[in-house]
Design a protein around this nucleic acid. Structure first.
Lengths: 218, 218
DNA sequence: ATTATACAAGAACATTTGTTCTGTGTCAAA
DNA sequence: TTTGACACAGAACAAATGTTCTTGTATAAT
């Protein structure tokens, strides 16, 4: 993933400016450093840098530029402690729609919403994202309306994984534990032990991610 | 050198804002946090904080506030970031025993087990503690074996609070939403909407705390 | 009672600042 | 040659934002 010389210059200037001044530069100050008087050129390039994961921008916020440490998606962002993991909240999970899956090319930092977790909750090192549950349809997974489900976009499942699965025939998303039963049958087991499993043909389901934590605030 | 409560609130807000957003707040945002709509009050107090060495201000620069290392407020116990809240895990919550209630003098450092949460999860400022659920008895509260329940030791309940209640006659702990129904009857409502409530006489129950968050790791 | 200081409030205004719009140039692909 | 993508430029505009001004209250010191 290569950057143009002007983009590199902008990143470098922002980094130095923050270190010197303690707050980020304005669009016009970045433009001066990159030898352009056009604020739209600066904005255009900053949007590219954001899409590539080098920084985030506050929308219509003065000096709303924040450098990220690396460009990978999604990741720990700017917090002083490695203990904190900021997880983007990409939207809602509802039973009647497939789970929104993060696009590798779109910066999660476009999202306005995120939740800070810690390494005590989340030992995962790979990309993770969160969704907020809408509706009561997940109660068989002991997940309540409003809960935040933390997921990783991994469709390689092993027996016992709690997965978000899209059932094509039923046109429904479900959160259940996944078990192979032979080659032609998958058992989806609710977390609620008083409820029975459902059985589906593998072709009927699409694994959209694994649930790795649930956060409920009251 | 003492600071007024409003000045302390402003410092705290700025610190948290920078850590969350990566750039400083505006005068108006600081004012909102300090409960004043007057930008001149904010500016006046920031000038005092600057004179006292807590921060510097860029002249006529938007978001031109920079906290200085010296003069910052004492940090949260043990962690570098005020964003992190370390919550002691005092033990297990099981249906057949009362909830362990923390000694008021306990410090998070005194307990061997704790979990780090963040202010995104836990806005509470008072004492909190956590318990790990043992067994399936809490599934009517949509809480699974192994979940971590974060509580505050507050027995002053209002309708709708999710409480840990010890039922004396039944000798059982239950987690349910609490509602008064007249003076002589309390309705304890499961979080699972498919399950019915139970009704108890107030003398039969002992409120041992309120649940303020649930953490599930998979 | 008066004065000084600290702190506050709201309004008005000026400046800073980011976004949008329109247009241009370069280059590669069709 | 035409088209589309990319990068750029400048102007205009709207919104964000900080400063200044005037007025007020509370408290302590004189």
């Amino acid at each position: 993933m290569t950057l143009s010389p002007r983009q590199q210059a902008m990143l470098q200037f922002i980094r130095e400016y923050v270190e010197t001044n303690g707050y980020p530069p304005s669009i016009r100050e970045i433009g001066e450093a990159a030898h352009t008087s056009s604020t739209s050129v600066v904005s255009y390039n900053l949007n590219i840098l954001q899409a590539k994961g080098y920084l985030t921008r506050g929308k219509e916020i003065s000096r709303g530029v924040r450098l990220l440490q690396t460009g990978s998606l999604p990741e720990t962002v700017g917090d002083p402690s490695d203990m904190i993991v900021r997880v983007p909240v990409l939207g809602r999970i509802v039973a009647s729609e497939p789970v929104p899956i993060p696009d590798d090319n779109v910066s999660p930092l476009d999202v306005e919403d995120s939740i800070a977790l810690t390494r005590d909750i989340l030992q995962e090192n790979g990309p993770v994202y969160a969704l907020q549950v809408k509706g009561e349809s997940m109660i068989d997974a002991l997940i309540h309306d409003g809960d935040i489900v933390v997921m990783k976009p991994d469709s390689n499942v092993r027996d016992g994984d709690l997965v978000a699965a899209w059932l094509k025939v039923e046109k429904a998303t479900t959160l259940k534990r996944f078990f192979w039963e032979g080659k032609d049958r998958v058992r989806l087991q609710p977390a609620n032990p008083t409820m029975g499993p459902i059985y589906v043909h593998p072709s009927n389901l699409e694994i959209q991610g694994k649930v790795i934590a649930v956060i409920r605030q009251l």
